[in-house]
Amino acid sequence: MITETLSLPVGRQRSVIPGFGITLGLTLTWLSVIVLLPLSALFIKTSEISLERFIAIVTSTRTLHALQVSFGLSLAAAVLNLIFGTIVVWALVRYDFPFRRVVDAIIDIPFALPTAVAGIALTSLYAENGWVGSLLAPLGIKVAFTQLGILVALIFIGLPFVVRTVQPVLADLDAELEEAAASLGASRWETIRRVVLPAILPALLTGFALAFARAVGEYGSVIFIAGNLPGQTEIAPLLIVIRLEEFRYADATAIACVMLLASFTLLLLINRLQRWSEMRGTGA
């Protein structure tokens, strides 16, 4: 300790608070063992597949269709979550109504409820003899075991991402902004469109991207309600599991690699969006 103090290292700022080296070392080690090393195994295994083989796997009709189902329906679910999530946030932040706090707490159920539980619950609700399914059946609408069923499950798991991202931003929005807009002659709708929405836009986009990212990788809540017909209601994560069960490791690995790259891209995008969102927050 004493010699260390005397030698006065130049460079990194010294701190009186101890434990930097050991805690950073342990953090990096643990991170590598649990997360980085396993993820790199995926890339190592992918690199063992020849390029032609990889392209053949990824562009096979079944894979392409599964990816299309996963990404397409995730996008649709995220859009619907964006719309309904914004309505929910608006009601929660701006209005007072009975049991508002309970309603607020309920939003987190999809975070807390295990996906398998959500999956069987949604299936029993939307099956033709279920509470909701039996109401829709006379109208000729089938939900369970169709793409519509997948959409319902993806809306369920994605909603809190939009709400919890936008809610604090809207709550922190300075009331004076809207008063200023009104004092300058803007109508209520113009105020919302020109002042409020631009202010919460980064948060809206972040919530949208988070809901989308979650939906793309979702497995548990979807497989019960999906029906899992190849080419119709088979999602990409399920195809990975099926290939794994068939011992077609190369296929599973290649599809997983595509999914993981998509996750990374989304993560990068979300990071950008969050930084933008924070800058907006401080700029106001």
Partner: peptide
């Protein structure tokens, strides 16, 4: 990072 990785992929990497 693990938040944005599909659970199926998370399982798969350990199988690999």
């Amino acid at each position: 990072l693990p938040f944005s990785v599909s659970p199926v992929v998370a399982g798969l990497v350990y199988v690999l």
